[in-house]
Design a protein around this nucleic acid. Structure first.
Length: 259
DNA sequence: ATTGAGACCTGTCGGC
DNA sequence: TGCCGACAGGTCTCAA
């Protein structure tokens, strides 16, 4: 898509979580995609019109890339194809999302920072801006459990249910611990914040290197979806358990994540 | 401030 | 085989 023009945009239903914006296809047609970026779980496309093409995969969304020049391939519509972008490069990019929890939206120029979700995102976990100080600052004074705090995109952007559990396990911190406990009363980081910030970076770098979210059904994690398994922490010997927090499943080792 | 429950949807899996 | 409930990578809103 990058550097190509939108030749034709086909919208195959009213919307996903929300209705598609007014004149969505018309506002894209003839524009060029100048740059691609990402904030947290949001994909951002910088358009020659100054608008931003915003996308979120939700739980089940995906983009499929096909090319007119690919020999022996006949691009076809399959179930749950909702938006098709035909590009001047010959590429055809299709947004498919069975559960329709995803987002496809257009943001007017300059409106991204005031966007209800994107505008309040916390720091990028792999950027230098995210460190123990930033994490402690975000958690200070909060009495919510650490696991719930890690899922709050305003504290740190982009962590989901898998890596929230895994990062806490690597840092050997209980998911039930109050988030505020990793900071001093003045919001300075305690040892736990230093461990957790580092663990988040380690877990995410490893996940990206292994594409473990892209193929998450085949992937194996430290604790996620491993209840009943033996804990991987050297010398621990505990058994991974699952419980519920804020409506989501949390996995942890009650032995090495006691506090 | 925080929790909990429910909503949005369809697909998959395990148990019977 | 087929049916049924539980659960799923994520937000978002409302009530308590």
């Amino acid at each position: 898509m990058l550097g190509a023009r939108f030749d034709r945009v086909v919208v195959r239903r009213e919307g996903l979580r929300r209705p598609f914006p007014l004149d969505f296809a018309a506002r894209l047609s003839g524009r060029t995609l100048r740059a691609l970026d990402r904030r947290g779980k949001y994909l951002l496309g910088d358009l020659s019109s100054g608008e931003t093409l915003l996308a979120h995969l939700g739980m089940s969304g995906s983009f499929r890339v096909e090319h007119a020049a690919d020999p022996g391939t006949t691009p076809a519509i399959i179930p749950h194809d909702h938006v098709v972008f035909q590009m001047s490069s010959g590429a055809r990019i299709t947004f498919n999302d069975p559960r329709r929890f995803g987002v496809i939206d257009l943001i007017a120029p300059g409106q991204l920072t005031s966007h209800a979700a994107v505008g309040v995102l916390g720091p990028e976990p792999l950027s230098p801006a995210f460190d123990a100080d930033a994490l402690a600052h975000g958690c200070a004074g909060r009495r919510i459990p650490l696991k719930v705090a890690l899922l709050d995109q305003r504290i740190v952007a982009g962590l989901g249910n898998i890596y929230a559990s895994d990062a806490l396990h690597l840092a050997r911190l209980s998911p039930r611990r109050a988030a505020g406990h990793i900071a001093t009363p003045l919001g300075r980081p305690r040892a736990a914040a230093i461990r957790l910030a580092a663990a988040i970076k380690t877990v995410l770098r490893r996940a990206i290197a292994r594409s473990s979210t892209v193929r998450y059904r085949e992937a194996r994690f430290r604790v996620y979806d491993r209840d009943g398994d033996r804990c991987v922490t050297p010398g621990c010997g505990g058994t991974i358990q699952r419980f519920w927090q804020a409506g989501r499943s949390t996995f942890h080792c009650p032995v090495c994540q006691r506090s």
